[in-house]
Amino acid sequence: MDRSFINKYYPLYIESAVLTVTIGCMGIILSVIIGMLCALCRYYKIPILNAIAAAYTELSRNTPLIVQLFFLFFGLPKAGIVLSPEVCGTVGLAFLGGGYMSESFLSGLVSVKKTHLEAAASLGLNELQTMTNVVFPQAASVSAPAVCANVIFLLKETSVFSAVSLADLMYTAKDLIGMYYSTTEALTMLVIAYLIMILPVSIVFTLLERRMHRAGI
């Protein structure tokens, strides 16, 4: 292992990690929003939107991210829509994540017992009051573990961004291997970079779950 190589090139990793995190975060935030909207459309069985949301969920969950990215980056320009690599990465991640998030949120919503909805109705709560006071708090605690798992999964999925020429962590590592043939050093730094990014998220989520569990929710 060549220590000087690591010392020389680690700033490149930091730079590309920032890009990975930025696009990852934007994609995840968007996927949470998309997922919530889709889950609500499906839970309340809103006509037409319900069917669209269900079809979208299946499409996004049953095709690989790299295929979705290729479609956005190489397929759409032929139809006259040219997206920058950054936009492709964000949109692709949001598209994939939205499907997974939708399933996770929906599973929380359907876990709320019918008796609780009827009890809320008998107390005179309207739809909105029932949603905010009864359905959402219960659904949130059921969905939380799955949503956290999705976040970590999506952060890891960012590793295919290099396929649309985004200079992310994976791209940097491949670049260094190509130029200097220092495979061991480049890949070791890659593993460590991903660990530094994702491990803290993982730990925070575990602690949060434990706290929710203790609160008896």
Partner: peptide
């Protein structure tokens, strides 16, 4: 209905207390 239901108290077999 929401208004009328405020005047009707209903208690269910499986309690229906909100667990959170």
């Amino acid at each position: 209905l929401n208004k009328i239901r405020q005047k009707i108290g209903m208690v269910f077999q499986d309690y229906g207390l909100f667990p959170h």
